[in-house]
Simulated scan of single mutants.
Amino acid sequence: MVGPTASGKSEVALEVARARARGGDRPIEVVAVDAFTVYRGMDVGTAKPSPADRAEVPHHLIDVLDPSQELTVATFQGLARAAIADVLDRGATPLLVGGSGLYWRAVVDPLRFPPTDAEVRADIEARWADDPAGAHAHLAAVDPPAADRIGPGNLRRTVRALEVLELTGERFSAFDDAWSRYAAIYPGLEVAYLEPPAEELRERIRARADGMVDGGLLAEAAALRTAGPLSRTARQAIGYAEAFAILDGEADADELATTIAHRTWRYARRQRGWFRADLRCQPPSDARTAVTSMR
């Protein structure tokens, strides 16, 4: 079950699980497809399912990392697929719920994420630092498709492509093959896509932002800071980045909810673009339709 932020996914997922339980069908367990609900202590700003909801319906990938730990898409892919396998092994149905199109595709599609090595990358950067055109020409000789997609002036991406080749022995372009195909690794995958009308979604986003501020987002952000350094991923979470700016004296607390709502709306528009490009995720699909179709 996917859709933009504040589209009602968590509520619908719980209703689906309850309907299954009432009907005596195969139980549902939720697998959260989200980059931030994985973090312990980040509750208010992530609209994390409540302890009561999680006690009623098992949830996976909630509170599994400390905010100091970095989360990559590749790491999340492994965690989510392991959780899905665990749910299936116990005879339950995994219901993936989230709004990240990238994470969603990383879990359900055969996408591969090449490794990285800071030392190898630094060596390549030093080798070509004064000759971006030469680096691109070298890439064109060893991986023409990658060179075609990377501009001659983009040394950072050129270096990344050469790094992958050196680390894996595979062309960087080989890792892109699956992106243009929407073919799930899970047979019989069913998708419910939630996308309220734009004005309704904006209102829901504004109400969520107000709820975060009223629910103690600033205090939660301050507690996170006190607990220790945050990973790059955790620092970028919508709501927390804005709260940290206020704690640092760089923004006005009175504008916190408005700022969060504006940034969330921009993110929601990007989410819609991700999902609309996937023919498995097609509106119209309201909450009632989603519940009915997944029973």
Rank of each mutant, 00 (worst) to 15 (best):
V2P: 00
G3A: 04
P4G: 13
T5M: 12
T5W: 03
S10Q: 04
A13G: 12
V16Y: 01
G24C: 09
D25Y: 12
P27K: 12
E29W: 10
V31T: 10
V33A: 01
F36C: 02
T37F: 06
T37E: 06
V38W: 01
G41I: 00
D43A: 15
G45C: 03
G45A: 09
T46N: 07
T46F: 02
K48V: 08
A52E: 14
D53C: 05
A55S: 11
E56K: 07
I62R: 04
I62L: 13
D63W: 05
D63C: 06
D63T: 13
L65F: 11
P67S: 08
Q69F: 08
Q69C: 12
T72H: 12
F76Q: 03
F76G: 08
Q77W: 03
G78D: 10
A85K: 08
D86H: 15
L88M: 15
D89K: 15
D89T: 14
P94D: 11
L96E: 03
Y103E: 04
D109C: 12
R112G: 11
E119L: 10
E119N: 08
V120P: 07
D123S: 13
R127C: 04
D130M: 12
P132A: 06
G134M: 02
A135P: 01
A137F: 06
H138F: 14
L139C: 09
L139S: 01
A140P: 07
A141L: 06
V142M: 13
V142E: 09
P144D: 08
A146L: 09
I150Y: 03
I150F: 01
G153P: 00
G153I: 10
N154E: 09
R156C: 07
R157S: 12
L162Q: 05
L162W: 04
E163S: 10
F172Q: 04
S173R: 06
S173D: 02
A174Q: 12
F175R: 07
F175Q: 02
D177F: 12
W179Y: 13
S180G: 14
S180A: 14
R181Q: 14
I185V: 15
Y186G: 02
P187Q: 07
A192M: 11
E195Q: 15
E195L: 14
P197I: 05
P197H: 08
A198M: 07
E199K: 06
R204K: 08
I205C: 02
R206K: 07
A207D: 12
D210E: 10
M212E: 02
A219R: 03
A221E: 00
T226Q: 14
G228I: 09
L230P: 01
S231Q: 04
R235I: 04
G239L: 01
Y240H: 11
G249K: 08
E250T: 12
A257Q: 00
A261N: 03
H262I: 10
W265C: 00
W265V: 04
R266F: 09
R266W: 05
Y267A: 14
A268K: 01
R270M: 13
G273K: 06
L279P: 11
R280V: 03
Q282M: 13
P283V: 12
T289Y: 12
A290K: 01
M294G: 04
